[in-house]
């Protein structure tokens, strides 16, 4: 048992030990339900407009499967490392928890780098800008919104790592870690639909 807690043992599932922690987790699920609606409307717009290319590049000309596969693998591995982070949380191993969160953040940054490279290539080499066609607008809005979620997650989890260094693992910091891991899994779930609906179905036609 960690000696850093003056008031005795850290409870078994510290993220659900206090009413505040339980409410935070429950409230976060309501937020994720809202996120599902948000991404649902962006998918709806994309699916409706994906063939309106306005004589610009089509999905089949644009997308490169190896790059999408690499981004998918990075995000899937990062989802697994945040599972390991929550397992370290449940074992009260704060050092391991910090390491797994850092690995998750680094993988998130790798994903973002790949996406920025991809978008820059589309805009410069392929002349596929935000205003090129209804397809390009709906593509950048949907995939860019997901990328913005990854960027926010990277910042958020980085701040939580800082709090873990400063405050250690307590019933206050544990719900933050748990909830950020749920967020990260949800971002990966959204990406599963993006690589399927946007990239793979774009190649099929």
């Amino acid at each position: 048992m960690s000696a850093t807690h003056a008031d005795g043992a850290l409870p078994q599932e510290p993220e659900k030990a206090t009413l505040e922690g339980r409410n935070k987790v429950l409230g976060f699920w309501l937020f994720l339900g809202g996120e599902a609606v948000l991404f649902g409307t962006l998918f709806a717009t994309f699916l409706a407009l994906r063939n309106q290319t306005n004589e610009g590049p089509t999905a089949n000309e644009l997308f490169h499967l190896p790059m999408t596969a690499a981004a998918t693998l990075i995000l899937l591995v990062s989802s697994l490392t945040s599972v390991f982070a929550v397992q370290a949380l449940h074992r009260h191993k704060v050092a391991a928890l910090r390491v797994w969160l850092m690995v998750t953040v680094l993988l998130g940054l790798g994903f973002l780098g790949l996406e920025i490279y991809e978008f820059a290539d589309y805009v410069t080499a392929e002349k596929f800008g935000m205003t090129t066609s209804a397809f390009s607008s709906s593509f950048y809005t949907l995939v860019g919104f997901h990328g913005a979620h990854v960027a926010f997650g990277v910042l958020w989890i980085s701040v939580i790592i800082g709090q873990l260094f400063k405050k250690g693992l307590t019933v206050v910091t544990a719900p933050k870690v748990y909830v950020s891991a749920m967020y990260w899994h949800f971002i990966d779930v959204v990406w599963v639909f993006i690589f399927t609906v946007v990239y793979l179905l774009g190649k099929v036609g």
Binding site: W29, L30, L32, G33, G34, E35, A36, V37, G40, F43
Partner: peptide, 11 residues
């Protein structure tokens, strides 16, 4: 319930 509700509206 929240997730099913969210996915239902999204669908």
């Amino acid at each position: 319930l929240f997730m099913v509700g969210g996915f239902f509206i999204a669908g």
